[in-house]
């Protein structure tokens, strides 16, 4: 069994060294305490009700000892924690900045070159990264166990994380601030890739992805997007009610809205729902649902939206 997750950032071994230090201190302490407990219980077991016991109430030497030693240990642990925390919170000058937006229950990432990704974060190895993060709705927290970093995202101000990835691979991003129904499914992946591959990805992943989709039926592509883009968190395909309406037999159905109007769910309706979900309390919404669907403008290409529509058509 692995006691610790993979260590994939410069901060990770520092955290691990504190965990190690405090574990050693704890193990020694608990052995000491258990030893005393057990030893005393056996050694001083009651033999008769008339046992003579000494009335010891003080021992200056011992009391000084067990005040001073814990104090020193606490100071040492504090300093360790502080020094590494200080390094972690200090932003390196040449950091590569990525914007992170969290909303129920997905993550989106915006890169300096204008690229955007959804639930997939791409970072180059060995380069200091700075995440500038904000939440669109309630609190969330960005946690990558492999990097040992965690920071809450708030609605009214930016928060930041610095890290330098040191290992190529794909690692989990969890949300660790409770945010409602699908909190535990608010999971994304961070891809740490070599500088070369990163440059390649930066210049043309879209094309690559479209190519990959080229020989697939659009409805199959839509099915993949349904889970990879996070629609699955709110929309079921089996008719079950979730945070959003189910997609079962959606296409061609008459939709009724909160303002009393209605409309047939055709291609344009679906496309508009994806790009311009109505926000605000008095806006038009599907009857019975709240204004929580995020806009996917800029996050889904036209062909991807088409694929989703094709997929929705197949759900009968």
């Amino acid at each position: 069994m692995n006691w610790l997750p993979t260590s994939a950032s410069t901060f990770a071994p520092q955290v691990d060294s504190i965990l190690f230090l405090v574990t050693i201190i704890s193990v020694v302490s608990i052995i000491l305490v258990s030893f005393m407990l057990i030893y005393f219980v056996f050694k001083y077991k009651r033999k008769s009700v008339n046992d003579q016991t000494p009335a010891i109430t003080h021992d200056s030497f011992l009391e000084t000892l067990w005040t001073v030693i814990p104090t020193i240990l606490c100071i040492v642990i504090f300093i360790y924690g502080y020094v590494y925390y200080d390094r972690y919170t200090t932003t390196p000058k040449d950091a590569y900045e990525i914007n992170v937006t969290a909303r129920r229950w997905s993550w989106s990432f915006a890169y300096p070159n204008g690229k955007k990704t959804f639930n997939e974060l791409y970072v180059p190895i060995n380069k200091p990264i700075r995440l500038v993060m904000q939440s669109d709705d309630v609190l969330h927290s960005f946690f990558v166990p492999a990097f040992r970093v965690k920071q809450d995202l708030i609605g009214n101000r930016y928060t930041f994380i610095n890290f330098t990835p040191t290992k190529e691979g794909v690692f989990d991003i969890y949300c660790t601030e409770y945010c409602g129904l699908s909190h535990s499914d608010m999971i994304a992946k961070v891809h740490v890739v070599s500088e070369f591959e990163y440059a390649k990805w930066e210049s043309g992943e879209e094309a690559k992805v479209e190519n990959a989709y080229a020989d697939m039926a659009p409805s199959k592509v839509g099915e993949q997007l349904y889970s990879s883009k996070g629609c699955v968190a709110c929309h079921s395909i089996d008719g079950a009610n979730g945070v959003g309406p189910s997609w079962k037999a959606l296409y061609g159905k008459k939709r009724e809205f909160t303002d009393g109007s209605s409309e047939l769910a055709d291609e344009n309706y679906i496309k508009n729902s994806i790009l311009y979900p109505v926000k605000g309390p008095d806006a038009k919404l599907v009857k019975g649902y709240g204004p929580v669907m995020p806009s996917y403008q800029g996050l889904l290409s036209d062909s991807e939206i088409t694929a989703i529509i094709e997929y929705i058509k197949t759900i009968k």
Binding site: V22, Y80, G81, Y84, P145
Partner: peptide, 13 residues
């Protein structure tokens, strides 16, 4: 003590 140490709490919180 683990949780009181800043850098460790970042991971464990």
């Amino acid at each position: 003590l683990f949780l009181g140490a800043l850098a460790a709490d970042v991971h464990l919180h």
